[in-house]
Design a protein around this nucleic acid. Structure first.
Lengths: 226, 226
DNA sequence: GTTTGGAAGTTTACTTCCAAACTTATACCC
DNA sequence: GGGTATAAGTTTGGAAGTAAACTTCCAAAC
């Protein structure tokens, strides 16, 4: 387990700070799948008592990031090929829904922001910094989902994306893929700008399918090593 | 607030028992939207200490059934027309996905169970007992979603259905709708049996659209009264 | 060599306690 | 009478303590 430190600047209940801290530790791989989350240990490490730790773990459990074993405690959820396939299958549909709704509902103002985000991603993709690319990617997708105006959809898509967060770098790192990613994003932007639901939906699904391929390749490699 | 009692027979951690108790109290309307959930109060009423109550509330928060106001506590989430529309919009898509996947993946054995469930619903619809009809309805849909083999999808659809639980009786009670419900279910069954994804998807979406209409009518009536 | 019994050590589950913050009510001033 | 201030009473947030369950490890029996 690498270092991870609590961010005290946030003005939130401790349980939420702990929740965010643990979540990002899991998503960035600082806490590895199968690793046990022990209350006293975490409490000492984060400098809080066990109560906020426990409350945070309950929420992580419902998010699917940790699993509880009764009387044994929590451990970071293991990601199997099956579980990721399941997540991607749902996300594929919800992303398609998102772009379709965006076609209907996006305001001109947000369309401009989307265009800017697209260009921003293009610039980022030319560079080598994966975290910059990842940020640009997230920003772009956030604009689309937000444009649906459906808060529940936003919440669900975010949660599903989260599950694959650990594998994002796989397809972002492959430089050979960058041109394709840029092209896919542009295709999505243009179909939304043209309010073409059919085309947007196809593009969104293809985008996920390509990601799935990269990620699955990666997982199979990891599993071979173990 | 009506009576609700903890079910001690379950062999589960107290927090889960409390979680289930509170959830069903909310879903059946024993706890009303906007009602405050005060920890000591609930603790006394359910005969436990505050900790399991608090942990249960954290989970309900993430499920969207209660909302937290910092330093003030939790209250039962209010259902607005918008929030239900959002839920239904997502569910419409996920139900369509479910039946499409079921077309591909359902085993003959489960197809038979689905047929039986269909007939069972038909019988129930002839009777007057709404809770029997509701149960038959749930059983039928459970078979379909389970047939997708996608655990994440099962979890999400269940959670979304839950949000509308309070309004289920609206469209189940209207006897004039019974024939339509039976016909819709049969259409869904037949298209799955015929492995016709296109037709199944259309039927599932129509099924939701009709429910949406009933529910929205009901909500507008409720809002007028307030 | 394997399995069973049990003791020691962890770790969770739940309770209890305390302090800080928010509400409400009352009194005082203008 | 209205408004502010302050004090009392709730209620949450967080910490610490206790007991029960689960591990682990070692030894004895088969």
């Amino acid at each position: 387990m690498e270092e991870f430190q609590i961010d005290m600047n946030e003005f939130l209940p401790l349980r939420d700070v702990v929740f965010n801290t643990l979540r990002s530790a899991i998503l960035t791989g600082k806490l590895k799948p199968g690793e046990r989350l022990m209350e006293v240990h975490l409490a000492n490490r984060l400098g809080v008592s066990r109560t906020p730790i426990r409350e945070a773990i309950r929420k992580l459990e419902l998010e699917g990031l940790v699993i509880m074993i009764p009387r044994r405690g929590a451990e970071v959820a293991r990601i199997t090929e099956k579980s990721l396939k399941d997540v991607l299958e749902v996300r594929r549909t919800l992303d398609a829904l998102s772009v379709e709704l965006a076609c209907e509902r996006i305001r001109e103002e947000d369309l401009e922001r989307l265009q800017k985000a697209c260009e921003e991603f293009e610039r980022a993709a030319k560079g080598k910094d994966a975290s910059v690319i990842a940020k640009a990617d997230v920003a772009l997708h956030d604009i689309i989902v937000a444009a649906t105006g459906n808060e529940r959809l936003v919440q669900l898509v975010n949660n599903l994306s989260e599950q694959m967060y650990r594998y994002r770098f796989v397809y972002i790192m492959e430089e050979s893929q960058h041109d394709m990613l840029v092209a896919e994003h542009r295709e999505i932007y243009e179909s939304i700008a043209g309010r073409d639901k059919e085309r947007a939906s196809k593009a969104a699904k293809l985008h996920i399918d390509n990601q799935e391929e990269s990620i699955m390749k990666q997982i199979r490699m990891e599993n071979q090593r173990n």
